[in-house]
Design a protein around this nucleic acid. Sequence first.
DNA 1: CGTCAACGACTGTGATCACAGTTAGAATAA
DNA 2: TTATTCTAACTGTGATCACAGTCGTTGACG
Lengths: 228, 228
Amino acid sequence: MASTKSRLPRNVTSTSLKDRIYQSVKWSLIIGEYFPGSVLSLRSLAKKMGTSTMPVREALTRLASERLLQSSVKRSYRVAELDPKRVADQFFVRARLEGIATELAVPNMTAREIDELEALSQMMEGDIESGNNENYIVRNYNFHFSIYAASQNEELFWSIERLWAQTGPYLAQVVRSQEMPKEWQLLHTQISRAIRGRSAGEAARLIEKDISWSISTFEAFTASEDKS
Amino acid sequence: MASTKSRLPRNVTSTSLKDRIYQSVKWSLIIGEYFPGSVLSLRSLAKKMGTSTMPVREALTRLASERLLQSSVKRSYRVAELDPKRVADQFFVRARLEGIATELAVPNMTAREIDELEALSQMMEGDIESGNNENYIVRNYNFHFSIYAASQNEELFWSIERLWAQTGPYLAQVVRSQEMPKEWQLLHTQISRAIRGRSAGEAARLIEKDISWSISTFEAFTASEDKS
DNA sequence: CGTCAACGACTGTGATCACAGTTAGAATAA
DNA sequence: TTATTCTAACTGTGATCACAGTCGTTGACG
């Protein structure tokens, strides 16, 4: 888990304990390591981290303020329960913001960056083929955020990342629990191809398509859950 | 002071101290009560609030995590110094998000809400006329956010509010230090009129125009500051 | 057997302390 | 006067404590 942290842009000197705990928990949320409704208590987390509760509570108040965790007074912190309206709202904003970021990014990306993108998309196709959902989740994150980083708009980048962490627990749960749809297989390759061709509008359209597929997959999943 | 609070019904005091301090500081940022570079130290703020440093530090870590304040290890919290690129990025995202929120809001707004909007815009015209910049800042906030609330997308609403708090210290500084441009006078009335006519696209376009005016006013201001 | 009150083990919150790193200003030297 | 050093007052960080509210379980009672 610690090795993946280097993917996230940050100030080089964020060595405080509270920051490391914050990053650690946030990453766990993004890759869906916690389930909706999971309880995160100060003392148990502190024990697990080998610290006092102090840095943990600062980390958790941060996460709660970014709406990644829910908290009410004197009740334990927990991963937000599934609220279809809320998740739909989040995906809606994600689609718009990620489309905008992609449009900005396309003219900025270097040939080397696009090569890496294409390599990633190849591996993601393989992950879908072999059903390696775990790898897919991480590579999908890296794929998207190497694009958004190229938008060179930090504010945009952070807004999107916050939303990913919010939708992470739900989406990852879906991706883990079932075979990934075959339609997903080509999409990311098409995206990197559109970027290579410098067609910003096309790339943005495909990114938004990617997200709308996520939505419908998610909705189909929750619908089937309700019946069981 | 503390003794009177404890006697109030519990639903009034149900919000924690840290939350109230958080809200208080955030509002101060939105209306530009703090200047770029202002230092907010735990102990001095705690003294001002009449509490220990504990709730203050949780409030400030929240604000820092939302990028409303800057913090580096063992250095005091401070309002971000002016970084033209960063502010431009923030305004860019604001324009897009607020345009989207407006488009969503227009079909949702009730006649009563639109009446209130129009009343606000009338008063804002008066504020510009009489040079009452202080009132204008607050009414402008209320005007915009009553629209964004009607988008009925909470995630969108919070994203925008966060950006307002980020740009607040810069923009408010400009608005306070000079006469407001006459062009601003009619804009908000036009916006409420477009909303009454249920033309979402037009309303969104005007909102984005409002923000782009903010940008250019801000840029003109910083340019003139550099020369002096 | 089923209901409900009460207990006990939890929860976050706020206060206070020790500590180490930062910083600004006074004292010293050139 | 100007530059530099050094100290003293400040900063956030982390640990620990007391406290009050929450919640699940147990045990008594109907």
